[in-house]
Design a protein around this nucleic acid. Structure first.
Lengths: 187, 187
DNA sequence: CCGGTCTTTTAACAAATGATAAAAAGCTAC
DNA sequence: GTAGCTTTTTATCATTTGTTAAAAGACCGG
């Protein structure tokens, strides 16, 4: 089964016509390490499914980079603000590894959501998952210091650490790379 | 028109049968200042619409309170993690003012989402709005220091400041009340 | 209008994190 | 294998934020 369908099926079962139209709307693309699925300033008008590889969503503020999230294999996501408003995205999507992506464009999503209730349910669930994850992130940023946030990242997304730089992890945690190095040294 | 419907209509037009069933599922309640719509430890199994008043969503970590959000008139919301998982909520919902709330229970929402595509679209949009707001919050917590976050709050939610304590604002910004007072003093 | 309570400010010191620079370690291409 | 580049660590000092305590101010009920 196509990996996009396997993923979707665990959220909501798509039946025959919706299923085929949904899958048919995806376009496969490969991105080299360092290349961009989305440039900052472009409008995000797709959802992306990562079949293989790793992508970061990040933005710059005066030369400093901050990372909103890492997306690895088996996730269907978008930059939701730009997707909803069609405004230029503050964020870029950059492949941290050679990455195979299946993308579906907004007009197709909107049509499929309109015509197939189950597709709408699927995208509702994606937003629900995103909300839960972001609420957890905000909660941690409020209550935990950088050391604890680093330890939580290790505990919950430990395997990712082998695939990202410590600079990127620091940009995700909201601290400097030097500060993260100090934390790792154990004081 | 009932305020819940007026609110929903600006997101998606509900037609005759869905419209009435939707409205009929809400229960009106009044909460005194200081009383709780949800206690920490209970499962959040409703969406709440605030007709009038103000509610904070907060949690405690070792005596320290942190505030996830403030909800004022004309918003339909829930504590989404507990709502989705049925797990006990880490958060309480507490009325900061005398508050009139219309609540709809999860079984009703699920039934209406199943039977009426438009209701599903409505709740999808609510999740999308929540996601956009939380992504903005995370972004600000990453890139801005406490002084700037305070100024942004003033700029974007200034009127709220008249209705909440500085202690609660500090708990929302993720700093101590003393630190916020120092920021307000201008250094 | 008074006493008590809660909120906010001020102050002094401590701890966490940032900024900068330099050294060390790791990686890659030839 | 080595030169050159990038990443990570280490060190020092500056800035921001936290902690604690006390004083000042605001609010409320009798």
């Amino acid at each position: 089964m196509h990996p996009v369908l396997a993923y979707a099926d665990r959220i909501v079962k798509l039946q025959a016509p919706a299923r085929d139209e949904f899958l048919g709307a995806f376009v496969r693309q490969e991105f080299a390490k360092g290349s961009r699925l989305l440039r900052a300033g472009q409008a995000s008008q797709h959802y992306h499914f990562i079949e293989q590889g790793l992508v970061k969503s990040s933005f710059y503020k005066e030369d400093k980079e901050f990372i909103m999230n890492f997306f690895k294999e088996n996730i269907l996501f978008t930059e939701v603000n730009s997707y909803l408003t069609s405004a230029p995205s503050k964020y870029q999507l950059l492949a941290l590894e050679p990455t195979i992506v299946h993308s579906i464009a907004r007009p197709d999503i909107e049509r499929l959501c309109r015509e197939h209730h189950a597709v709408e349910t699927l995208f509702k669930q994606l937003l629900a998952f995103a909300s839960v994850g972001m609420m957890k992130r905000i909660s941690e940023m409020l209550e935990e210091n950088a050391t604890t946030r680093y330890q939580l990242f290790l505990r919950e997304r430990g395997p990712l650490l082998q695939r990202i730089s410590l600079g990127d992890l620091a940009a995700y945690l909201g601290i400097t790379q030097v500060s993260l190095s100090r934390i790792r040294a154990g004081q």
